[in-house]
Computed example of a mutant assay.
Amino acid sequence: MRGLLILWLAAALCGSPAAAAEARDSRFAGWTAAIVQADWRDGRGRPIEAFDNARRDLVDAFVRAGFARETMVDYSLRTDPPQQALQGLRDAAARGTRGCLLYFTSHGAPDHMVFGEAQMTPDVMANLVRRTCAARPTVVIVSACYSGQFVNALEGPNRMVLTAARRDRTSFGCGADERYPWFDGCVLEALPAAADFLALAAGARACVARKEAEAGVALPSEPQLFVGAEMQLRLPTLRFERPGP
């Protein structure tokens, strides 16, 4: 499966130079955004709605925060083949060339994230992000168990990486009775009040800690955050939009 995924990446990510995106009155004008729901099942393989709900509502939330729908794509690998999602990401990157927001929500194992019927390993994700976003300011959010494994592979001066858990910890909320995975729900809870991505990360991490304490979780997930040197200076200037009165 991993070999097939690498072939899909190679086919999807080679293309013509990116075109300029339409200007919007937003600090995120010209940014590519992608929300990818890479699984749709619970731990026993039964279909659940939590991941679908998260993808749908994250799209709406980030549009309200200032991301243009014209340069945003969202995919459910429940219905969209991985190669179609990767091609769509390439097409979106050709329309939005100023920055990247990539958000993945899925299940994870200690050495990979579920990517449809395939696997996304840290090295494959690093290749995807590098070839799609290059030197643009880039925010990568990975919502999955063991997602801290992606931090080292994705680190860079132009990167912010936020994960739902440490590399050796699970995350929670992927059952049939949950509206969202807990981490995704916490991002949605924190985003309306957050001024920027740094505040969003702080709010989401605090929300996860609160939920886990209330549930009596013995080994908390401990979401991880990395911010590169360039992004430390840039992120405070990238403020989210807020609807007018």
Rank of each mutant, 00 (worst) to 15 (best):
R90H: 04
D91W: 01
A92C: 02
A92V: 01
A93D: 10
A94K: 07
A94P: 00
R95C: 06
G96F: 03
G96K: 06
T97W: 09
C100N: 14
L101Q: 11
L101W: 09
L102D: 09
Y103E: 03
Y103A: 04
Y103H: 12
T105F: 03
S106R: 06
G108K: 12
P110K: 07
P110T: 05
D111Y: 07
H112I: 02
V114I: 15
F115T: 10
F115S: 08
F115E: 08
E117P: 02
A118N: 14
A118R: 11
Q119M: 13
M120T: 05
V124T: 12
V124Y: 08
N127T: 15
V129H: 06
R130Q: 15
R130L: 14
T132R: 05
C133D: 06
C133P: 08
R136F: 04
R136I: 03
R136A: 15
P137A: 10
V139C: 11
V139Y: 09
V142W: 04
S143I: 03
A144P: 13
A144T: 11
A144Y: 11
Y146N: 02
S147C: 09
Q149C: 02
V151L: 03
N152I: 02
A153L: 09
E155H: 04
G156I: 04
P157M: 05
N158R: 13
N158W: 12
R159N: 14
R159Y: 12
M160T: 13
L162K: 07
L162V: 09
L162Y: 05
A164P: 12
R166T: 06
R169D: 02
R169I: 01
T170S: 15
T170I: 14
S171V: 06
S171I: 04
G173S: 08
G173Q: 01
C174W: 02
C174P: 08
G175M: 01
A176M: 13
P181H: 07
P181K: 07
G185T: 00
G185D: 04
V187T: 10
L191I: 14
A195F: 03
D196L: 12
F197I: 08
L198R: 14
L200C: 12
R205V: 00
R205W: 00
A206F: 00
V208F: 02
V208N: 03
A209P: 01
K211C: 00
K211N: 03
K211P: 00
E212C: 01
A213R: 14
A213L: 05
E214W: 00
A215G: 00
G216D: 03
V217I: 14
L219A: 07
L219H: 03
P220Q: 05
E222Y: 01
L225Q: 04
F226M: 01
F226L: 01
G228R: 01
G228N: 01
G228I: 01
